[in-house]
Simulated scan of single mutants.
Amino acid sequence: MAYSSRPTSMLPGAPGGSSMRQPSGSQSQQSSALSARIAAKKAELENLRQLRDLSGTLATQMQALENKVSTLKEGTEAVAYVLSNWDNVLRAITLASKKASGLHAPLAESESKNVGNEPSLPATLVRIPAEPREKTGE
C-alpha cells in the first residue's frame, strides 16, 4: 500500500478537505450577495441618520411651538380676566358719573335750561357710546 504524501483530513474546516471546496462561481455569487446586503444596510443606516436628524429638528420646532402656545394661553387668560371685570368697570363709571353729576347739580340745572333739557355730564370722564353712531363723514 502506498501512502500519499498529502495530508487529508475529514474535519470540516481543515484545509485541503474535499468537502469544503466550492466552485469559483458560487463564491462570487456569495460575494456579490454579501456586497448587495452591505450596500442595502448602508442605505438603511443613512436613512436612519436622516430620520434622526429630521426628528431632532421636529422636536426643536415642537418645543418652540409649545412656548408660543403657552404665551398665547397666558395672554388669553389675561384677556379673559379683563373681560370678566368689564361689567364692574362699566358699573364703576356709571356710579362715578351719577355721583359727579349730583355734585354739580346746580350748575347742571342752569346749563340744561340753556341747552334744551340735556343734563351736564362731568368733563373728566370718558364716554363710550353704547350704540353705533351713524356715519357723518368724519
Rank of each mutant, 00 (worst) to 15 (best):
T76K: 06
A36P: 02
A14S: 15
L83S: 03
L58Y: 07
E134W: 05
K98V: 15
E74C: 00
L45C: 03
L45Y: 06
P7Q: 10
L95F: 07
L90F: 09
R6C: 10
L90Q: 15
L103R: 10
R49C: 02
Q22L: 11
S18I: 15
E74V: 05
P15C: 02
A39R: 12
Q50L: 08
N88S: 13
L54F: 02
L125C: 02
V115A: 13
D53N: 09
D87F: 02
S4A: 05
A59S: 12
G75F: 01
A78P: 00
K98Q: 14
V69R: 05
V69W: 02
M1K: 11
D87P: 05
M1N: 12
A33T: 06
W86Q: 09
S112E: 13
S120R: 08
L45A: 11
S101G: 01
L65S: 07
R21H: 14
K98W: 06
N117I: 07
P12W: 08
S24C: 06
A36F: 08
E138M: 01
K113S: 09
K68N: 08
S31F: 12
N67E: 11
S35A: 10
L58N: 11
N114D: 13
T136W: 02
I93P: 00
L45T: 07
D53G: 03
D87E: 10
L34G: 06
L65Y: 05
S19E: 12
V79T: 05
D53Q: 10
N47H: 04
L83C: 02
M10E: 15
Q30E: 07
G13M: 08
L48R: 05
L90R: 14
